[in-house]
Nucleic acid binder design. Sequence first.
DNA 1: TGATAGGCCGCAAATATTCCTGAATATTCA
DNA 2: TGAATATTCAGGAATATTTGCGGCCTATCA
Lengths: 155, 155
Amino acid sequence: MIPIMDDIDRKICSILQEAGRTSSAELAEAVGLSLSAANDRVRRLVAQGAIAGWQARLDPQSFGLGLCAFMLLDLSFDGEAEAVAELVSHPEVQELHHISGPHSYLMKLRVADTRALQAFLTRVVKPLPAVLRTESIITLDTAKETAAIAVGADR
Amino acid sequence: MIPIMDDIDRKICSILQEAGRTSSAELAEAVGLSLSAANDRVRRLVAQGAIAGWQARLDPQSFGLGLCAFMLLDLSFDGEAEAVAELVSHPEVQELHHISGPHSYLMKLRVADTRALQAFLTRVVKPLPAVLRTESIITLDTAKETAAIAVGADR
DNA sequence: TGATAGGCCGCAAATATTCCTGAATATTCA
DNA sequence: TGAATATTCAGGAATATTTGCGGCCTATCA
């Protein structure tokens, strides 16, 4: 099956990435299809992998996680894989990207406060043999933070 | 109402941020409560704001968005607010953080390819009067990318 | 023009959610 | 301490949603 995606599919995805609990009836109405047709679409999109999962978005503040930080990492080639495996295993690490440029990796962290960041750095990051250098970036204020992608459904 | 959160609340949140469509029955079973009690919890967590929303996680590749990039921005104070407002209005911009350190902002972008990144830079970023300098960081490989936070429910 | 496949619709059964009541347990205050 | 008040939980009925199925329509292709 060739995963062609038409405007209706995109609109469905657009709606669901904003409001994941939209009922099939509402969804059907929004895209102008019958309930069962809309449902078929959603099921197909999940099967195709375009919809990768469903999740509740939690409020970090409610869980005492007030600090978002980024960390640039310089890793030696030796032990790099082990370091990556160790880092991604921690829930404080939300993202870990291998990047272009003078640094090896960019890591996104979500922790309670600067104290917790310091603790994470000391307990987890620095002990890794591959870690040559780190540079921490604290977010002071967040203007936008979403995982939503540009589906292009509004045309 | 003081939003006290006990272990059961945390476990519920932990489950739902992994699998947002878990049925109340499953949820109830997982935390050892009756269906209605588990449901009450979820409703309360939503009302409190601990659960901020529900969403389908989409696969960027399926929508032709193969490139994740970060951009460090140096903005002049003059026109900063307008630049921020303009940037966050674009769906390609997933995140925009005001950060500590020598740069003003860190922006996360999701676009089709380097060509699209270049186009965004030329069409959207550079024309902003407040933009003094930019530094683009391309992600070569992503070891982890999640919005899940450390709920601390596994204790 | 006839066969076939894909998408859509509507209905009915199965399942899930919501709402209500009452009992048990904590908490507050005199 | 003891009574009054709140919370939290459980069960069940009413409501809503999801799922599965059969059939219709349309586009495609030989």
